[in-house]
């Protein structure tokens, strides 16, 4: 089953569940209208500038104190790694919150794309989380509280960009791991994330999201031949703090070209009405999810191993 259909299935089942649990109509959240905090920060990723040097990966590893990588960060053979019969390129995981992939668009030069959390204005991870582990900070970062996370992996399925990864390394403390925009160490102190700081090409432009939108459009207008006329993430999925400019159609560099402008929150907003209820029955829920997560752990490990060894199961991207 593809990620998308799993997600839609989840959204539908969650909404259905909520509808049957709670009687009577609830006030719908104003959705699709939140364009982020007014001074929220973002990053404009310009794929025409990226040279695939992987310095951003190295900087992330150091800043987030992640484990040593499988291969050195100056080893470009990672660009040839694929999964699921060549259908899927590298994705961020619990040991690497960002990865750079290489694409070879038809008849053009290679294009490199850095992948990480896009820090959505209305994050699907946040709205799908049963225990409110996620927060969208006013600086623009989508962060999570690992003390609250019960490891249920709902956000993993909900994220339209396949970003949150599950920490398999600790069975006692299963948590989601993902890019947090260097919130704790940098963003909240007014500093750009480590990847932006290191990039030799300024492929990553850090600034106020509203300024980056202007800059993005200015680049498109000023260099008619260089970009396709689309600022990906300005509107897509309700808008993201990280936005992209590309020299070729976005589907050629691994993006879903038609994600729509509605945030995933719209699919699950009914469910959000149940959050206060979740909090009311907190202890029971917490215990239940934790046990469930632990019980599934053995199975998950097996699944993970099998995936790694055989590269089976369909994937997309």
């Amino acid at each position: 089953m593809s990620g998308i259909s799993r997600r839609r299935f989840l959204a539908a089942s969650v909404a259905g569940c909520a509808a049957t649990t709670l009687a009577g109509p609830r006030k719908a959240l104003a959705s699709g209208t939140f364009s982020g905090y007014p001074d929220g920060m973002g990053v404009l990723v310009d794929l025409t500038r990226c040279v695939g040097c992987r310095s951003c990966e190295a900087a992330c590893n150091k800043e987030q104190k992640l484990p040593a990588p499988d291969r050195p960060f100056d080893d470009m053979s990672v660009f040839d790694e694929t999964f699921h019969d060549g259908k899927q390129k590298r994705r961020p995981d619990e040991n690497a919150y960002t990865v750079v992939n290489r694409y070879n668009p038809e008849g053009g030069a290679p294009v490199y794309r850095k992948v990480q959390c896009n820090h959505c204005n209305e994050p699907a991870c946040l709205s799908s989380c049963f225990v409110n582990a996620y927060t969208k900070t006013e600086e623009g970062a989508v962060v999570y509280n690992s003390k609250v996370c019960v490891g249920c992996r709902t956000c993993m399925v909900a994220c339209p960009f396949h970003v949150p990864a599950y920490s398999y390394s600790s069975s006692l403390d299963p948590v989601i791991k993902k890019c947090i925009f260097c919130y704790d160490t940098r963003l909240k102190n007014g500093l750009p994330p480590a990847c932006v700081d290191i990039c030799p090409q300024e492929a990553l432009t850090f600034g106020k999201r509203k300024d980056l939108i202007k800059i993005g459009h200015q680049r498109i207008e000023t260099h008619p031949g260089r970009y396709v006329a689309r600022l990906y993430g300005e509107k897509e999925l309700g808008g993201t703090s990280w936005m992209y400019l590309a020299p070729v159609a976005f589907d050629q560099v691994g993006f879903d070209p038609t994600p729509g402008n509605e945030p995933i929150i719209n699919n699950v907003k009914d469910f959000l009405g149940t959050v206060p209820m979740v909090l009311a029955i907190w202890p029971a829920m917490f215990t239940g999810f934790h046990l469930l997560a632990k019980k599934q752990k053995g199975h998950d490990d097996h699944e993970h191993d099998a995936e790694q060894q055989q590269g089976e199961d369909g994937g997309e991207q």
Partner: peptide, 10 residues
């Protein structure tokens, strides 16, 4: 050190 050039792939 930054690029962890001494890492040996498994």
């Amino acid at each position: 050190d930054f690029y962890q050039i001494n890492v040996v792939h498994a």
